[in-house]
Design a protein around this nucleic acid. Structure first.
Lengths: 196, 196
DNA sequence: TACGACATGTAATCTGTTACATGATTGA
DNA sequence: TCAATCATGTAACAGATTACATGTCGTA
């Protein structure tokens, strides 16, 4: 019962509410995309597979003449989800072009230009902070889940938790870069003074 | 002159020293793999392509009967590398299964089990810290680049910089998790006391 | 009536890893 | 002599994105 990458988000979201493939994609793009993306090209085929395996159950529920299939999680699906969550192993992958540039920045002659590489990296993370702040603002003003019983359940704390992690993380990176830039500038000033 | 993902590491390493494909792979696995991996299946074809484009220049230099082709960066290659590094845009991708588990941990009934999910995430990052500490230890004791002229150049500071970032980052995540676990446990204790 | 959101699906493409094939050299 | 390392290369596969095709519905 190994779950693939897409199955994990699908079962996760379906454990909260019944959704169509389209709905799932909306929620992914609004939340997990920052650390776990999923495209239509993965979602729709996987919904079929998961239904065949009996982890989810689909029901046709067209809106007028517009075809729509809403899926709900089954007991077997819940078991699979819980067993994945409770498994202590998990992968972490970081692919960071800014770090790669810093790593090779010795190839740049001018010290000011090398500092600029760090500053550019900081800027990328500032943008991420802004994006996440926008997400946070949206969450507090207009909750994405609008069903009344959903708002009533106040115990859905974990997504906010993860959002906080994202904000804290990107802010930390910005500060790290700024600290290192400052100490680099100080070191350089000393060298400059020595030469004068 | 858009560089693809593998071209970036190749040009970066060749800007320091002349290397074979095998050498490049060794260096990637020893350093950038934590944020920028590359496999033989990418490296060898790309070396050919970069030579055709004139960004690198290969020379056959067999060791005895063992075939070997060593590449050096050209002036055009240096220009391409510098222009990529100085470009302010860069991608950041994080794929974090632990965060995904935390995100969906509301599906787990027991509060203790939910805390365990956070603890497991912390553990993954502790392992990363250990791995990076091993890398750091290797660097200070036996520098990977052993050519004397290389050791003499003391101005290759950026790789150590990036290593420091990795260590600081993973330690920060561990502390973040521990802080949140503690505050979660305190909140729970209060609820428990209220019920009592 | 036209546009944007709703809704499903797939084919082409791209990127990257894994595994294998092949063979030489070095050192225990 | 045997295993590990040096060395190059490719085919098969896995994972994911992009772009397209198709059509409905609500609303400005």
């Amino acid at each position: 019962m190994e779950l693939n990458s897409v199955a994990k988000v699908i079962l996760g979201f379906l454990s909260r509410e019944n959704l169509s493939g389209y709905d799932i994609k909306l929620r992914v793009d609004d939340s997990t995309r920052f650390f776990w993306a999923a495209s239509y090209g993965q979602i729709y085929p996987e919904l079929k597979r998961l239904e065949e395996e009996g982890l989810i159950q689909g029901t046709d529920s067209p809106h007028g003449g517009r075809a729509r299939r809403v899926y709900g999680i089954t007991d077997r699906g819940r078991t699979a989800l819980a067993s994945w969550i409770m498994d202590t192993g998990s992968t972490v992958e970081l692919r960071h072009e800014g770090l790669l540039k810093v790593f090779f920045a010795d190839a740049i002659d001018s010290p000011e230009d090398r500092v600029a590489v760090l500053e550019a990296m900081a800027q990328v993370h500032r943008v991420q902070v802004e994006e996440l702040e926008a997400v946070a603002a949206r969450k507090t003003s207009v909750p994405i889940e609008c069903a009344p019983e959903t708002i009533a359940e106040g115990d859905r704390r974990m997504p906010a938790f993860v959002l906080k992690f994202g904000l804290d993380f990107h802010r930390w990176v910005v500060e790290w870069c700024e600290r290192e830039i400052e100490s680099a500038l100080k070191a350089e000033a000393k060298v400059g003074a020595g030469h004068a």
